[in-house]
C-alpha cells in the first residue's frame, strides 16, 4: 500500500477558509462592491425624502451612512446562501475534509467578513459626517461621540452575524443552488428597494445610539452560534446527488 497521509483537522479548516477567501472571491468582492455603492449613495445624499401634510413641508437630505449599513446587512443575508449551497458543497468535496470541517471553515470565514464589513460600515458612518461639511450643509453631530460609533459597530456586527447565521442555516437546510442564491438576491433587492431598507435602518442606528449595545451584541452572538451549530447538525449528512 502506498503511504497514507495523516491530515490534521486544523489544517483542513484553514484550507477551507483560504479556499473561501481566494477561491470564492465573489463573496468578498460583492461585500466590497456593495459598500462602495453604499458610500457613493451616502456621498450624493441620494437618500433624502420629503413629506408634506399640506401646511408644513419637510425636506430631509440624509447624509448618514445608512446605505452602506443597509447594503452590508443585505450582503450578510444573501452571501451565506451561496457559501452553504449545493455548488459550494460539490466543490468542497473535491478537497480533503468532512462536513463539520467545511462548516467550521465557512463559519469562521463569514464571521471574519462580517467583522470587516461592519467595521467598514461604521467607518463610513463616521466619514459621512464629512460629506455634510463638503456639501455645505449644517453639521449635526450625533450624540454620544465615540461611544455612539462603538455601539453602532457592536450592534451592526451582531445583526450582520445574525442575518448571516440565519441565511447559512437556511442555505444548508435547503441546499440551494448557485442560481437560486442569485435569484433570491435579486428578489430581495426588488422587494426591499435599497431606499426603503434605508429608512428601516435609521431605527437600528438610533437604537444603537441609545440601547445597551453590548446586550444586543451578546444576544445576537448567542443566537448566531445556535444557528451555526444547527446548520452544522443539519448539514452533517448533506450530499450532492449527481
Amino acid at each position: 500500500m502506498s503511504t497514507l497521509t495523516q491530515p490534521t483537522a486544523g489544517n483542513a479548516v484553514i484550507n477551507q477558509f483560504m479556499r473561501n477567501l481566494f477561491g470564492r472571491s465573489g463573496i468578498l468582492g460583492s461585500l466590497l462592491a456593495l459598500q462602495v455603492i453604499g458610500i457613493a449613495l451616502s456621498f450624493f445624499g441620494g437618500n433624502g425624502f420629503g413629506t408634506s401634510d399640506g401646511q408644513i413641508s419637510i425636506n430631509v437630505v440624509d447624509y448618514s451612512a445608512n446605505p452602506v449599513i443597509g447594503l452590508t446587512l443585505l450582503w450578510a443575508l444573501i452571501s451565506p446562501l451561496y457559501l452553504s449551497g449545493r455548488d459550494s458543497l460539490q466543490t468542497d468535496l473535491t478537497f480533503p475534509g468532512s462536513r463539520t470541517i467545511r462548516h467550521t471553515g465557512n463559519v469562521l470565514y463569514l464571521s471574519a467578513l462580517v467583522l470587516a464589513g461592519s467595521l467598514v460600515a461604521t467607518l463610513a458612518h463616521m466619514a459621512s459626517v464629512l460629506f455634510t461639511v463638503i456639501s455645505d450643509r449644517p453639521l449635526i453631530m450625533p450624540e454620544g461621540g465615540t461611544a455612539h460609533y462603538a455601539s453602532l459597530f457592536a450592534v451592526l456586527t451582531g445583526y450582520c452575524l445574525l442575518l448571516a447565521a440565519l441565511s447559512y442555516f437556511a442555505g444548508t437546510l435547503f441546499s440551494v443552488s448557485r442560481i437560486a442564491a442569485f435569484a433570491l438576491f435579486a428578489l430581495v433587492m426588488i422587494l426591499l428597494r435599497v431606499t426603503a431598507l434605508n429608512e428601516l435602518l435609521a431605527a437600528i442606528i438610533r437604537f444603537a445610539g441609545e440601547g445597551p449595545a453590548s446586550m444586543i451584541l451578546l444576544i445576537c452572538l448567542l443566537i448566531s452560534a445556535f444557528l451555526f451549530l444547527a446548520a452544522m447538525a443539519a448539514g452533517s449528512r448533506q450530499e450532492v446527488r449527481a
Binding site: 477561491g23 470564492r24 465573489g26 455548488d87 460539490q90 449527481a242
Partner: peptide, 13 residues
C-alpha cells in the same frame, strides 16, 4: 480522490 463529471473547483480560481 474521485475524478468524475461533476468534479468542480473554486470558481474564482
Amino acid at each position: 480522490l474521485l475524478v468524475h463529471e461533476g468534479m468542480s473547483f473554486p470558481p474564482a480560481l
